[in-house]
Simulated scan of single mutants.
Amino acid sequence: MPRSQINGNFIDKTFSIVANILLRIIPTTSGEKDAFTYYRDGAI
């Protein structure tokens, strides 16, 4: 699910926002960022 189409309850939205912020802040490689994005999208 693309980030722009995040639907759901308050907890889902909050998790998505926090995950996006952490993904930008934590120094990781592009492969790790892609893996986390796939995991996050699958968890939603």
Rank of each mutant, 00 (worst) to 15 (best):
G8H: 14
D34F: 06
S16W: 14
F15M: 09
N7M: 03
I21R: 15
K33E: 12
Q5V: 10
P2E: 10
K13V: 03
T37R: 10
I44T: 05
A19G: 12
G8C: 05
D34P: 00
S4K: 11
T14Q: 14
T37A: 04
A43M: 13
N7A: 04
P27K: 06
L22T: 01
G42D: 12
N20D: 11
I25R: 09
T14G: 02
I17Y: 07
I11S: 04
I21E: 14
P27D: 06
S30A: 09
A19W: 14
F36H: 04
L22E: 05
I44C: 00
R3H: 11
R24A: 10
R3D: 14
S30G: 00
P27T: 03
I21H: 13
F10N: 10
Q5L: 13
K33L: 03
I17P: 00
P2S: 08
R40C: 03
Y38R: 14
D34V: 07
K13A: 04
N7E: 12
D12P: 00
Y38L: 13
R40Q: 12
L23R: 12
A35W: 01
A19R: 13
T14W: 15
L22C: 02
L22H: 00
G8L: 07
D12Y: 03
A43E: 11
N20A: 06
L22S: 03
I44N: 08
N20C: 01
T37P: 00
N7V: 03
I25G: 02
R3G: 10
G8A: 07
Q5N: 12
G8T: 08
A35Y: 02
I25A: 04
S30I: 08
Y38F: 02
K13S: 03
P27F: 01
I25Q: 09
A35H: 07
S30W: 04
